[in-house]
């Protein structure tokens, strides 16, 4: 009996101790600069949103300055999804939440300044500082994508676009610097701003020379009756920028964009001593 109990105990222990079950598969191994990619994407979106505002403003200015006979064509070309309205002292695009106050001046006039507003706040100014050159300044703005609280002082210079296609006016060379506090929430259902300091990062960027932002098609925006994408986005395609992330400590990221290809933008990201190539 004692031998039987001992044998059964031994077999029981061997069987049970070797029966560990995987209840959740682990992650696949991540790239060393994956965290840097996430931060870079948010910086690119932030700058791209301001460049997009500037692009819309320049197109609006040129549409206002255009002869009446050309306005219809330009409206179809540059604003296919919006209806332009002039209300009080501001221009609005129907279905867009922001508006432009022009002060009665063209954005191609040196030192002319437009204000971009959202609700009761006007936190973005666009000023002509030279031929095809504008400065964009914002302070405490939530205009940018994902409702990050942004500050920026950047200069955009219009260049001949890399890609041809209706609706594209310029690519832009961007220089300057800015920073933003990330939104503490990323709600799928609706955009809200959450300033909970326990769940935010402060990200700042600096462009020493210039980074070219290319107007390129957004591949996820095809509509059934159109051959080309309905929306376009501005993406950093060429140049270098430095990024700092303030978390518990401060991390530095260096981004070097090489070129825009059919597979996406080829870029190098350097993070914690590791440099990796990304194409997307």
């Amino acid at each position: 009996m004692k031998k039987a109990i001992f044998s059964i105990s031994l077999i029981f222990c061997v069987l049970s101790l070797s029966s560990c079950v995987i209840i959740d598969e682990g992650d696949s191994v991540k790239r060393k600069t994956e965290a840097a990619r996430i931060i870079f994407d948010n910086v690119e979106d932030n700058i791209s949103a301001m460049a997009d505002l500037c692009d819309m403003a320049v197109k609006l200015s040129r549409w206002i300055d255009a002869p009446e006979s050309s306005k219809g064509t330009l409206e179809d070309l540059w604003f296919p999804d919006y209806k332009l309205r002039y209300e009080g002292d501001k221009w609005i695009f129907r279905d867009l939440s922001y508006y432009f106050r022009t002060g009665g001046k063209s954005l191609d006039s040196l030192n002319s300044e437009w204000a971009v507003g959202y609700g009761d706040t006007q936190s973005v100014t666009i000023k002509c500082t030279g031929k095809d050159t504008w400065s964009v300044k914002c302070s405490g703005s939530l205009f940018t994508s994902n409702y990050h609280l942004s500050e920026a002082n950047i200069t955009l210079t219009g260049r001949g676009p890399l890609l041809s296609g209706s609706g594209i006016l310029y690519d832009y060379d961007v220089s300057g610097s800015g920073s933003f506090i990330t939104n503490a929430s990323q709600s799928y259902h609706y955009a809200v701003y959450d300033s909970n300091p326990d769940n935010t990062l402060t990200i700042s960027y600096s462009i020493g020379e210039k980074v070219r932002f290319v107007t390129c098609p957004d591949s996820e925006s095809y509509y059934p009756n159109y051959d080309s994408p309905r929306y376009r986005e501005l993406r950093a395609s060429d140049g270098e920028m430095d990024i700092e992330v303030k978390d518990e400590g401060t991390e530095s990221i260096h981004a070097e964009m090489i070129s825009y290809t059919q597979y996406g933008v080829v870029k190098y990201l350097t993070f914690r001593g590791h440099k990796e190539i990304w194409t997307y």
């Binding site: 991540k30 994956e34 965290a35 990619r37 996430i38 931060i39 948010n42 994902n146 990050h148 990330t182 939104n183 503490a184 929430s185 990323q186 709600s187 799928y188 259902h189 959450d194 769940n199 935010t200 990062l201 992330v245 978390d247």
Partner: peptide
């Protein structure tokens, strides 16, 4: 059903 915040995505990475 909410996406991660930027900070959560950064830490996860």
């Amino acid at each position: 059903i909410d996406f991660l915040s930027v900070k959560e995505g950064y830490h996860n990475a």
